[in-house]
Design a protein around this nucleic acid. Sequence first.
DNA 1: CAAGATTGACACATCAATCTTA
DNA 2: TAAGATTGATGTGTCAATCTTG
Lengths: 165, 165
Amino acid sequence: MTSTADPRWLSPDEREAWLGLVRVVSRLPTMLDAQLERDAGLSFVEYLVLAMLSERPDRCRRMTELARTTNTSASRLSHIATRLERQGFLQRDPDPADGRATIARLTDAGLDKVVRTAPGHVERVRQLVFDALSGEQVDQLLQINADLLAGVDPDGRTIPTAVVP
Amino acid sequence: MTSTADPRWLSPDEREAWLGLVRVVSRLPTMLDAQLERDAGLSFVEYLVLAMLSERPDRCRRMTELARTTNTSASRLSHIATRLERQGFLQRDPDPADGRATIARLTDAGLDKVVRTAPGHVERVRQLVFDALSGEQVDQLLQINADLLAGVDPDGRTIPTAVVP
DNA sequence: CAAGATTGACACATCAATCTTA
DNA sequence: TAAGATTGATGTGTCAATCTTG
């Protein structure tokens, strides 16, 4: 059962904040994709996969872990990895330590791709986000993002608040 | 040409704020879709189209205008409208005032759908967003969202800052 | 020719089913 | 049986092409 009580409608301020957030959430991905697609032939999520791998010393990560850090499902990441592998940016191998796991590794070509793509991407991120915000707002945004979505897990189940025995 | 100068990399704080924003932008739509799909058989953008129409006194809006308020392209909205029309929630008719335009109208069934769907949806929005934020943070978020994406238009072109003659 | 809107082809995400190993 | 991962079918978004009216 969801609720039989009266709905807690949004206040005018909440409503305006909500519609603003919806606008950002709807438009930002499109804008990021546009720049990356045009300049590098990558979608944002593909770039993110490569970038997350590039920040590891060994350029490796298990698929499950990589899915978490790139906000994707296992299935989606698998399809993405297939494409990136086909382009030579990525390689997958079984984990020697756990036969169930797969380890994704950034190839030399993949690292090169990230290095060449990053400057244009970060410039775009500045245009869209940070050039428009004060340092104080960046701090506020950081905290807000940390709090958002905290009430539920990815599957939509409510996360119980910590209980002290 | 994009830039030959050194990239302006993100500071640690900016980087953390950015990854947090990416997380929200990636996961929030999925979570909204999950609740609406499960409880009402609607995607979030479909719900948004119906909701935006329901707030007009005559339940009508031109397609172009509706696309803007729902953060969609004309093409995408057209596909969405086709589906909603097939389900009987929406009706499209030519604009008598301008033969090029099409006016989308929410049907009685569509209004009923919004009315029945809204409570569960707003509850979900509270869980995901507002229950986690203080009143002060809501104000901050409102202002931040207003500033974000201000630097470029939907097509990615940089918007020139106002010039005084 | 521009504005408003739609269409169909293609690419991608999602979901359920499946396979393998711990 | 659960965890990790992949696969294929289906639905939806995107892009380019098209059509009609101002």
